[in-house]
């Protein structure tokens, strides 16, 4: 874990807090679209995207690759009053406060072979998209940005404009989104990739538009910032080490149920992507919903955050 100090806080727009974190000297480099897991309560981490260092000349100095040997980490976090508490804790941070975070994790990188990158951002999803845009601007890659914005609530809109110039298109009205996506994706040059960060509805709309324009799935990338609930049929998990039984309700994930029972389990993305919560399964068939385990690894392991026992099964975990 990195021991960091809050150097500055700002409110770029209503409901969003930007936080500048520093360490002792340069911090670990990170790829575009990377996040850190910020510890908001002991053992509880939330992933937040790293955005490029702002500067008077734009969001990043053009003379150094974004993400290389940063002096500071910049995060912008939307307040979720009904969330578990992570965003409320971040919004309460003040300069001088100490926080702990994982080193950068990469889950949403650009595809280097693309001839053109279409970046789609909705709401606070602008944060990794900003990092992608800064990266492409530095390396001279072809890109465009589609920003779905409700007036007044998108941070970094000015930063994006500074980076992307006339390569930025905006929809401020929900009804304008389909046409914006359609035009961009049907007209995208050969060998484009599209990257979306935003609410599930926007991600689904981009995927559907791309599919209609005959894009193959490997060209469509997304990072959801609202966790899809890992719900399903209730089941029981037996913890081998303690012999305890934990009942998992229909409306919660196995990880939620373990939290409720006070059982410590590692986790980070809570989307079945990062692999942090992968746990050994001693018995019971699993309905796998993650995207991290290979077929041979699924035999005997599960991602606690999204996967569940198969209907009618009990899973026994090495926990």
């Amino acid at each position: 874990m990195l021991e960091l100090r809050v150097a500055d806080v700002a409110t770029p727009c209503a409901g969003v807090r930007s936080v500048t974190l520093v360490g002792d000297g340069p911090l670990p480099s990170y790829p575009p679209g990377a996040h850190v897991g910020l510890e908001w309560a002991p053992g509880r981490l939330n992933p937040y995207s790293l955005t490029p260092t702002p500067s008077p000349r734009g969001p990043t100095p053009r003379d150094l690759p974004p993400g290389l040997d940063p002096e500071e980490y910049h995060l912008s976090i939307a307040l979720r009053p009904d969330g578990e508490g992570g965003s409320r804790r971040v919004h309460a941070l003040a300069p001088g406060d100490r926080v702990r975070a994982t080193p950068p994790r990469s889950s949403f990188p650009p595809v280097g072979t693309a001839a053109h990158h279409v970046l789609v951002a909705g709401g606070i999803g602008v944060t990794p998209v900003l990092a992608h845009a800064a990266w492409h601007a530095f390396w001279g890659n072809s890109f465009e940005v589609l920003l779905v914005q409700r007036p007044g609530v998108t941070p970094h809109a000015a930063d994006l404009r500074a980076l992307a110039g006339d390569r930025l298109a905006r929809a401020t009205d929900r009804t304008a989104v389909p046409a914006l996506l359609d035009e961009a994706l049907r007209g995208a040059p050969w060998n484009s990739h599209v990257y979306t960060c935003g609410p599930p509805g926007l991600i689904a709309a981009v995927a559907a538009t791309a599919r209609r324009a005959h894009w193959v799935a490997d060209r469509v990338h997304a990072e959801p910032f609202v966790h899809a609930p890992a719900t399903g049929t209730p089941f029981t998990a037996v913890l081998r080490r303690s012999g305890r039984e934990v009942a998992v309700g229909a409306g919660e994930s196995l990880l939620d149920a373990l939290d409720r029972a006070g059982v410590a389990a590692p986790r980070l993305c809570r989307q079945g992507v990062c692999g942090e919560c992968v746990t050994e399964v001693a018995a019971g068939r699993v309905e796998h919903r993650d995207t991290v385990l290979g077929d041979d690894e699924r035999d005997g392991h599960m991602a606690l955050c999204v996967s569940r026992a198969a209907v009618g099964e009990t899973v026994e975990l090495q926990l």
Binding site: L185, R186, G187, A188, P189, W190, N191, S192, A213, H214, W215, R219
Partner: peptide, 10 residues
């Protein structure tokens, strides 16, 4: 040819 095509072509 490729510069004249859009993504989606096979």
């Amino acid at each position: 040819e490729l510069p004249r095509l859009t993504t989606g072509w096979r």
